[in-house]
Amino acid sequence: MIADAEAIGFVLHEARLIDEQRFDEWLDLFTADGHYWMPLEPDQADPVLHNSLFYDDLLLLRIRVERLKGAKTYSQKPKSRCHHLLQQPMVENRTSEGCVTWTAFHYLETRMGEQAFFAGWSRHHLVRQEGRLRMHLKRVDLVNADSAFGSIQLFM
């Protein structure tokens, strides 16, 4: 059983780790079979036979995180910064294994004096493993998922 307050605390903490670029700690929030998914269409059901902006397993996320630190990662010289503004998460779909939270958000990513603004809804699929909450799916639906974008280098 996951209490509302615990689930909400997880979501707030998760956003803070990204904003503070504590990406190794962020990766540690995923289950071993976890995915970070950002669909390309509203209400997209299939992450495999329809494309997405992200559909990363833990290995791919690890590659991205290590790349962001890399000495030869020129698209991060200078580095990007980001900011989340979250609405109060709502806890739904509670099952014996866990729950799903739904969180409306605004997100801003900035680099070299330019900033890109995004808005959408995150769903964190939470489970308890070895006494700790982890997410086995973080799904991010942008309000304009089917739009054209410039670079998105960090995580929402």
């Binding site: 390309l40 054209a148 974008f149």
Partner: peptide
């Protein structure tokens, strides 16, 4: 198939 990715450069 699979949608179109659009990336502004």
């Amino acid at each position: 198939a699979g949608g179109v990715l659009r990336y502004v450069h």
